[in-house]
Amino acid sequence: MEGISFSVGEGKFVGVIGPNGAGKTSLLKAVLGLIKPDRGEVFVFGTPPSGLGKKAHHIGYVPQKSRFDPRFPISVYDVVMMGRVCCIGLFRFPGKRDRELVAESLKRVGLEGYEHRPIGELSGGEQQRAFLARALCSQTRLLILDEPTTALDMPARQEFYRLLKELKDEMGLTVIMVCHDLQSLAVHSDELICINRTMHLHGRPQEVLKSTHLLEAYHCEFDFLSQVKEC
């Protein structure tokens, strides 16, 4: 990947789109500090991701659903508490404040009453909401999501986007999300970034989706012309 340069303003909802193999996940990983770019620099909250230190708490990450082992013997409550592990610090155990924040996060995503359910027994949409709650409970300011709705059916997907938008507005979050669902991004995002090994477009959803460069990025003319019209 090369020729990628963009900045994301605080409080923006940015969608990252592009065909499979375009480097969307690699881009997110570079922002998260999981991989280092060969050339160039990444700054998050004004510092490189590797030097974030305690500011790392401000990043909430919701990975792709496939990474998770559904047989892991753990309750929803304990999964969400993992979001607090770094804030609690080494050699210490969760206190009253941590328990309150976990309860608050569960309430925000509508999973009150699910605390003791094993995570593997939840539906796909509920699991993603639990992971969202985990990402939210560490004083999060930047939320990064990697295709969070891939395994969800249409109603669960719409519900997830609605929740995300609501949380962003309520908590003043900045959101960066990789997603294939152009229609939903057109409705919910403030900006779209289209990449395919390089950056093709960055702008408001309506502009990006109507641009002829989008077809160039995807190397095909599949059905999103119709999606663009609907937008």
Partner: peptide, 16 residues
């Protein structure tokens, strides 16, 4: 910390 890494190593790494 070990439980977090066992459940989701990547997210644990991101959280610092």
């Amino acid at each position: 910390e070990l439980l977090f890494i066992s459940f989701d190593e990547e997210v644990a790494r991101v959280s610092g």
